[in-house]
Amino acid sequence: MTLVTIHIATGTVGLVTFWIPVGGRKGGANHRRFGRIFINTLLATGITAVGIATTTLLDPVATHPHLVEHAVFSDPLMVRAIFGWLMLYLATLTVNLAWHGRLALRHRKNHRATGTRTNNLLQIALLVASTTCLMQGYWVQQPMMMGLSVVGFATVATNYWFIFKPEPNPYDFIKEHIKSLVGAGISVYTAFFAFGAVRLMPELALTPGLWAVPLITGLTLIIYHQYAVTRKYQMRSVVAK
């Protein structure tokens, strides 16, 4: 319950502050201030989610006694899969993206420097978590878990693509920063919609549409802002010539 309390408190701050850097003027004082708050609260949210998921893996029924009466989660294996392995995967994804997004901005002049020991360990952790989510989803016959695992594999691949890119454009670090932090926001909103829905309507917790809303919204934001950054710098290049 202590972990849940901290998780809800930090997660709520993260969910609200997410929109200030996304919707506000880029690079301004509010963008930087609330961006830092967003990253720090998401790291805390992700770490506490790891603890919550671990307690579920150890004892799913005692951790979620209110779910046993519902047909969807009457099997402890299902509770362990969704609230254990899936939550652990989303928590790892959130921490990975928040940390990588911070490093992309910090090491804007040397993208290779983002490949720190901690960041490499987070890539390995996400690769393991994604594989586990895929396997657990197959064992409990939950296509949603298998589908979501693809996001983790894609994250590791794109993170390393950025780290080892031979000759990045001068604005690639901004695009990576956007991808990572908006992606972290997607992860938190996904967990909020899905796991929060269980409290109100357990039968809707595994509805694909519920999980798709934050994913589609987040991808749209990433594509739009990355396009805007690319267009801005390309226009500057044309003017300079």
Rank of each mutant, 00 (worst) to 15 (best):
R112V: 11
W161K: 13
V128P: 10
E176T: 09
W99P: 00
V128D: 06
Y89R: 01
T230G: 11
I39P: 08
T158K: 14
V239E: 08
S149C: 04
T131V: 11
H111L: 13
I186E: 00
T10W: 07
W161A: 15
P65A: 06
A240D: 13
A184H: 13
R199A: 14
F83Y: 12
M201H: 15
F164W: 14
T155H: 05
R25D: 07
V150P: 00
P76N: 08
R117F: 15
T54M: 13
E69Q: 13
S149P: 05
G147L: 06
T131P: 05
V140P: 03
D75G: 06
I52C: 11
A194Y: 08
G137D: 10
N120Y: 07
T230W: 09
L127H: 02
T45D: 05
F173K: 09
R36L: 14
L88T: 00
T158L: 14
V68N: 09
A104H: 06
V95N: 04
P170T: 07
M144Y: 14
T10G: 07
S130C: 00
G51Y: 08
V79P: 04
Y171V: 05
R102Q: 14
G196S: 07
I186F: 01
G51I: 00
I20S: 04
L42S: 05
T56Y: 06
L3C: 12
T116Q: 06
M87W: 06
I37M: 08
T114L: 10
E203R: 08
F83D: 02
I223G: 09
M135R: 10
T158H: 12
V13E: 00
L204K: 12
H31V: 09
M145K: 01
R112T: 12
Y189P: 02
N169T: 11
V50D: 02
T158V: 11
P214D: 00
L86G: 09
R32Y: 02
R117N: 13
L121V: 13
F153K: 03
L210G: 04
V229P: 11
R25S: 11
V79H: 04
